[in-house]
Amino acid sequence: MSSLHVHCKLQAAGRNYVCYTRQHEQLIWFLVLTDGIDVWRTEVNEEYVERHRGEVHCADISALIQEIRQAIVTCQLVVDRQADRLSLSIGHWPLHFDLFEVSSSERKTELQHFIFWLADLSTDLKARLQVANSKIEELSQKQKMSETAAAAALYEPEAKKRSKQPKLKRQVGTSLINPSSKKKKSAGGVVFD
Rank of each mutant, 00 (worst) to 15 (best):
S105F: 13
S105N: 05
E106N: 09
E106R: 13
E106W: 06
E106Q: 10
R107T: 09
R107A: 04
R107F: 04
R107I: 05
K108W: 02
K108M: 05
K108R: 12
K108D: 11
K108H: 05
T109N: 04
T109H: 04
T109V: 09
L111P: 00
L111F: 00
L111Q: 01
L111G: 01
Q112N: 14
Q112L: 05
Q112C: 04
Q112Y: 08
Q112A: 08
Q112F: 07
H113G: 11
H113Q: 14
H113E: 10
H113D: 11
H113S: 15
F114G: 11
F114Q: 12
F114W: 14
F114R: 13
I115E: 10
I115D: 03
I115N: 08
F116Y: 12
F116L: 14
W117Q: 09
W117T: 13
W117C: 08
W117H: 11
W117D: 10
L118Y: 05
A119W: 04
A119D: 14
A119I: 14
D120H: 15
D120R: 15
D120T: 15
D120Y: 15
L121F: 12
L121T: 09
L121E: 12
S122E: 10
S122H: 13
T123H: 13
D124P: 01
D124I: 05
D124C: 13
D124S: 15
L125Q: 08
L125W: 01
L125S: 03
L125Y: 00
L125T: 03
L125F: 02
L125H: 04
K126G: 03
A127F: 00
A127M: 01
A127Q: 03
A127P: 00
R128E: 06
R128A: 08
R128I: 02
R128D: 05
L129Y: 08
Q130T: 02
Q130Y: 01
Q130F: 00
V131C: 01
V131K: 07
V131T: 05
V131R: 08
A132H: 03
A132I: 01
A132R: 03
N133T: 01
N133Y: 04
N133L: 11
N133R: 12
S134E: 10
S134L: 06
S134K: 11
S134C: 10
S134I: 01
K135G: 03
K135D: 13
K135Y: 11
K135F: 13
K135W: 12
I136W: 14
E137M: 03
E137G: 04
E138R: 11
E138Q: 12
E138C: 10
E138V: 04
E138I: 03
S140P: 00
S140Y: 03
S140V: 01
Q141V: 07
Q141S: 06
Q141R: 15
Q141C: 01
Q141E: 09
Q141P: 00
K142T: 00
K142A: 07
K142R: 13
K142D: 04
K142Q: 09
K142S: 09
Q143C: 08
Q143P: 00
Q143M: 06
K144P: 00
K144A: 07
K144R: 10
M145R: 13
M145P: 07
M145W: 06
